[in-house]
Design a protein around this nucleic acid. Sequence first.
DNA 1: GTCTATAAAGAGATAGAC
DNA 2: GTCTATCTCTTTATAGAC
Lengths: 195, 195
Amino acid sequence: MAARGPYAKGVAKREEILTAALEVIARQGYRKTSTKELAAAVGLSEAGLLHYFGSKEKLFEAVLRARDEADVDRFEESDLIGKLTAIIRHNSDVPGLVQLYSTFSAEAGDPQHPSHPYFVERYARLRESLADAVRARQSAGTFSPAADPEVIATVLIALSDGLQVQSQFGLPVEPADLLTQVVGLLGSAGGAVDS
Amino acid sequence: MAARGPYAKGVAKREEILTAALEVIARQGYRKTSTKELAAAVGLSEAGLLHYFGSKEKLFEAVLRARDEADVDRFEESDLIGKLTAIIRHNSDVPGLVQLYSTFSAEAGDPQHPSHPYFVERYARLRESLADAVRARQSAGTFSPAADPEVIATVLIALSDGLQVQSQFGLPVEPADLLTQVVGLLGSAGGAVDS
DNA sequence: GTCTATAAAGAGATAGAC
DNA sequence: GTCTATCTCTTTATAGAC
């Protein structure tokens, strides 16, 4: 997948920066991760770094966007609900990722935050896709038809986010296992599923 | 409950600061809330403010501690699960609270954060109390005995946290209503509940 | 209990050279 | 595409007077 042409170097550098950002966050924590340290991690000056992303927020947003895109491709085995579980399971293996995601998205809750619109769009999109997956399972008879797909989708997202935050403070169970359990519980509630 | 004696003024001022902190966060957003602005909101200098709480983090932690304590007393009608729903419902009426809670707790996910230990303890305590409430409902026959109380407790907390984050980006349903629905679903799954 | 003053550091971003 | 240099602003926290 090596890009060629005049932009090859720039593209590679961008990707190097996105990867390094997570390493820095893992090492220093999100709070203490400044453009200065981000730049140092990839052997650039602050000005050099900002040349690629314009601002710290855009950089972090780019890390998360890249993750989302990669996650869609990975884990081809099952539907989006299954994928979500796989993603949660693997997220804890990427130091810094949970810290970045939870803190950055919480900050972006402020309507003034430059990445607020990104998250509004992202959550809406994810909710719709997940609702589609619920409907598909209902058609296949593997999920209770009594459930409202939009509600289940919203719940699944909230659960993923909330479990990942909680996992940072110590959890008696693996978040991914918990999610699997809840999907089973929710899917069978209200009856009418093969058993 | 008006305190008297030599500390009365200090106590009142502390409470005034805690209340004002939420107002400032609601107005400026968490990111842009500095000790300078916090101080101005209560007519103190930065040094005057820090006299009471020592640091910005301790101040924010105190806001959250005070909330938790007040929440336990409010809403006496039902058990902790019912209370949780009532709390979620009312949290959205307090501008700045969701923003403070979600961002501050996410930041505190960093083990180096001064309030990390506070959240570790808080989540453990909340999980235990909620698990007790689940057990009580199971004994009363109003919650599926098939469910693991600790798992349900963890799920309920994650859901509350996750829904409140999501609500900042627009939600098709009221978080509290959603929580109620899920409690019903989870409580009936696995059968053996009066209906 | 509160202030002034100030430290001391760190932030994000830009201009302009190379 | 990258750097040096620098700006400007803001941050949290402290020392010491009142």
